[in-house]
Nucleic acid binder design. Structure first.
Length: 233
DNA sequence: GCGACAG
DNA sequence: ATCTTGTCGC
């Protein structure tokens, strides 16, 4: 199954693809030094099928920007909770292939294994690129957790039944927690440590925060007017 | 059957 | 996700 054909899949077929892919997910310690970390995100406006994907590269742990790549794609696959990857991964792969240097680990704007079928966007992307990946989502998709105390870096485990699939992390005081989970080829503990290292005063970790700003800029530069109202005449 | 539901 | 203006809290 090629990502280029994702838009032709029915939701049932997409789920079947996920069930097949989950057998290859590896949640294990990445025993290679991390010198470069990447952040990825997608931008689009709900009235069009155009998707703007972008990846920003940083030195780690200094987090100085050292590169970036973007890609403009189109998708007809709708947003369906649990099947986000089928909408965003194709364009993200295009951006990934334009990167001159590949990062040691990637941070994606979505879930890793904190997913009903352990196949969140970050896990899916990691499998297709064979790159270590981590999911950092702004909202919970699945799993149960207790609210972390209101202190910086307070955290609580995210459970699916009795299995720990991620954590709710208070990245900043007085802000809603973010949901961190390993994507592929990194452990739970490493994922948490890396994301904490990437928190620099904002609720969102630098990789995805800056990738978000980048893709929005790409979208605007491309001429997207967003939610501009149509004139009556 | 009724809610929940990444972006 | 995107859009949008003000408003509440630290």
């Amino acid at each position: 199954m090629l990502p280029a054909d994702y838009e032709h899949l029915t939701p049932a077929q997409a789920i079947a693809v996920h069930e097949q892919m989950r057998n290859n997910v590896m949640i294990e310690t990445l025993d290679k030094p991390i010198n470069i970390i990447g952040g990825a995100d997608i931008s689009f406006n709900k009235y069009e099928e155009t998707v703007y994907a972008g990846i920003v590269l940083f030195t780690y742990p200094e987090l100085k920007v050292i590169g970036q790549a973007s890609a403009i794609g189109r998708t007809s696959f709708p947003y369906i909770p649990g099947l986000l990857a089928f909408r965003e991964v194709p364009a993200l792969l295009d951006a990934w292939n334009k990167l001159e240097t590949k990062p040691d680990v990637m941070v994606l704007d979505g879930q890793g294994i904190a997913h009903e079928h352990r196949m969140g966007l970050a896990t899916h992307f990691g499998l297709l690129t064979d790159a270590p990946s981590i999911g950092s989502a702004k909202n919970r998709l699945s799993g149960r957790y207790t609210e972390p105390t209101n202190e910086p870096f307070a955290q609580s485990l995210l459970y699916d039944r009795d299995e720990v699939i991620g954590i709710a992390l208070r990245s900043k005081k007085n802000c809603k927690p973010i949901f961190v989970s390993p994507g592929h080829k990194v452990s739970m503990a490493q994922s948490i440590d890396i994301i904490k290292t990437c928190i620099r005063g904002y609720r969102i970790p630098e990789p995805t925060r800056q990738a978000h700003n980048f893709v929005n800029q790409v979208r605007i530069s491309h001429g997207d007017k967003g939610n501009e109202q149509l004139s009556m005449f």
